[in-house]
């Protein structure tokens, strides 16, 4: 089952990357990042069946960082939305010269 779990992790990660590259809604892009973090967690847990529980400890840390990232990132999205009234990244182009 280890190979299947790792393959599923790889495919989920690629789906997350494709989502980040194809979507323009900032919130959905953010959720795609969460999906990628979940894919990495799956490989950690799958490999922890071979190498002991350290992998699971790393999953706990990953989840903490994901929670912190979600809180700050969504606050940034709300702050941006107050300024430009959109979360479509096509319309958020202040840095375009």
């Amino acid at each position: 089952m280890l190979a299947e779990a790792l393959a599923l992790s790889a495919v989920l990660f690629a789906i997350g990357v494709i989502g980040v590259l194809t979507r323009r809604n900032a919130i959905i892009i953010f959720m795609c990042v969460e999906l990628m973090l979940n894919a990495v967690n799956l490989s950690f847990v799958a490999l922890s069946t071979l190498y002991g529980a350290s992998g699971q400890v790393f999953v706990v840390f990953t989840m903490t960082v994901a929670a912190a990232e979600a809180a700050v990132g969504l606050a940034i999205i709300i702050a941006i939305f107050r300024h430009v009234k959109t979360v479509n990244l096509q319309n958020i182009n202040l840095l375009k010269g």
Binding site: A3, A7, A10, A14, V17, L21, T22, R23, R24, I28
Partner: peptide, 27 residues
Amino acid sequence: DARGRWGQVLALLVGLALVAPLLALSK
């Protein structure tokens, strides 16, 4: 909000390029 057709094709290629070596490693 999805990007145009070429953007999607490009993203699909990037995804395949990413998943192929990982799948090969896991198999």
